[in-house]
Design a protein around this nucleic acid. Structure first.
Lengths: 295, 295
DNA sequence: CCATTGGCATACCGAAAACGTATGGGTTGG
DNA sequence: CCAACCCATACGTTTTCGGTATGCCAATGG
């Protein structure tokens, strides 16, 4: 059962003549005639009635024709679909993002993506710091918006921006009256910290920041997510040092203030598997860069 | 775009390994590997990710896989459908019948046919005497139940039974009191005749019958169909000489009586195009013979 | 009645594609 | 470090396909 034979068969059926079909197929008539007879031999029954003025489908031939046409169309469509996916015109793009970035980036990124790749099924999934590598490696997400960046040999990353650190505190805190907070004022105040550098890189930049300014903040609590950090800040358990973008997702009652003379910032990065060559990744990167640049 | 390649592709995708797929396809591994790469060249993009422990579909490969599987199934189904039609297990059988036979035969023939060929689409169409040849020749009906038989070089026929002639008359007619009517009693009575022998063979047997018994019946009216003949009989315009089976479709007020000492009868025949080799014709013939034998 | 035309089938040959065997090269696991 | 596994490449052989030449049959026309 060769697809070429089916193609020939359909051509002959539509032309109602071997000669005409051969002409349309840009081949000679005899080999076409041979192929048709081979197909008939394979089926075990005549597919055409040979008249003196051309060929006409038998009932068996008609039954084959409808399915053969569909099969041809499907095969062609399959090739085309594969090309479309490979070129990024169609397909699926699963975007992972970390919560801190959600409010700042997604509202502008999603429409931008839908405009850029209208034929692509988009999917969004919030990532936790602990599973983001795994989700990339097992391909359950194609790209990840990370902060801070992932460090893994199989994962490629592109830095697309950075966010300065800010101090998050309850609105009633005395420090909230300052328009910016000098680092020295943090000395001795309780810190709501994100995971320890040994388990995840989330707070290593904060540790470096404090050390550089020779400020010591006792760790009041250590939490997994920015959600939790802000909850504890609101509860008055301490202060958190968070990237500026986090304030868009902050609950009422929490204020953010710039840290004076602290130039430190946290990178926003797009990450993907090194062996994923989907063109959608580059498109995504462009969109993300554009959105982040406009922050 | 060759169907063989698609088959190979599906096998490799399902086995997730060239070697395993080659084994299943009963071929060597290298040529299979070559075919896969040729398919990838045709698509213009890799369809598999080559790992150290086998092959894995890329997104483009997944897009192709679903359509390729369907195309393969359709192609196979097409071949199978053609075989089924050729063998008579499936297909379409369009049965033409003449009105005189409808009431006597169809009620028992249709269920018999549905039992015999459950996969076949049945279609029934009443034929008029003037178009029955044309309907067979242009294949708008596959077989025809005719009375009398068709005479045409392209049409093959099989006689499956016969019906004696009877006299049709209004119930008030004096002749209706006889349980059978001697031919001599018809002398001089008005006849409702079917088409002239020159235009159709319908009444030639009646002409022969009358001539043999040296009975002359003036033709009161000449009508096209048995319907009309019975209407005129009911209206008191005359008598009709019709095959016995016609009485099943006769309206109230008409009675049929046997013609004494008239052994003449009209053949019931199954007719089809000589070049129609559908096995359904033979099946139909068997069913029709069985039903007619039980009349 | 014969010649011509139109259409499919058959025969044969050259070319292309596919298959098998042998082999290379990379990675994994003991 | 060697063995096992798996895919890729190379090359010779075989199968299949397409082209040309030609035959057969029926319908057409003078």
């Amino acid at each position: 059962m060769d697809l070429r034979r089916l193609r020939y068969f359909v051509a002959v059926a539509e032309a109602r003549s071997v000669g005409k079909a051969a002409e349309r197929l840009r081949m000679a008539q005899p080999p076409l005639s041979v192929q048709i007879r081979k197909l008939e031999a394979e089926v075990g029954a005549p597919l055409f009635r040979r008249g003196t003025r051309g060929m006409d489908l038998t009932e068996a031939g008609q039954a084959l024709l409808v399915r053969a046409s569909e099969a041809l169309a499907l095969a062609a469509d399959g090739i085309e679909a594969a090309r479309a996916v490979a070129s990024g015109r169609r397909g699926r793009l699963s975007v992972g993002y970390m919560f801190v970035l959600a409010n700042a980036i997604l509202p502008r990124l999603i429409p931008e993506l839908r405009r850029s790749v209208p034929g692509v099924d988009l999917e969004f999934a919030e990532l936790s710091a602990s599973t983001r590598e795994a989700r990339l490696l097992d391909r359950s997400v194609t790209v990840a918006l990370c902060m801070p960046a992932i460090n893994h040999p199989e994962i490629q990353l592109a830095r697309i921006g950075a966010q300065p650190f800010m101090l998050a505190m309850p609105i009633r805190s005395p420090l909230a009256r300052l328009s910016s907070v000098p680092m020295a004022k943090l000395q001795g105040r309780p810190l709501i910290a994100l995971p320890h550098p040994d388990h995840g890189p989330a707070s290593s930049a904060v540790v470096a920041l404090l050390r550089r300014h020779q400020v010591v903040m006792p760790i009041a609590s250590r939490v997994e997510t920015v959600h939790s950090a802000m909850s504890l800040v609101l509860a008055g358990e301490g202060f958190a040092i968070l990237p500026a973008c986090a304030q868009l997702g902050a609950p009422r009652g929490i204020v953010f203030r710039p840290l004076r003379d602290a130039a430190d910032s946290l990178d926003i990065a797009v990450c993907w598997r090194r062996d994923s060559h989907s063109p959608l990744i580059r498109t995504f990167l462009k969109c993300a860069e554009k959105v982040v640049a406009a922050l």
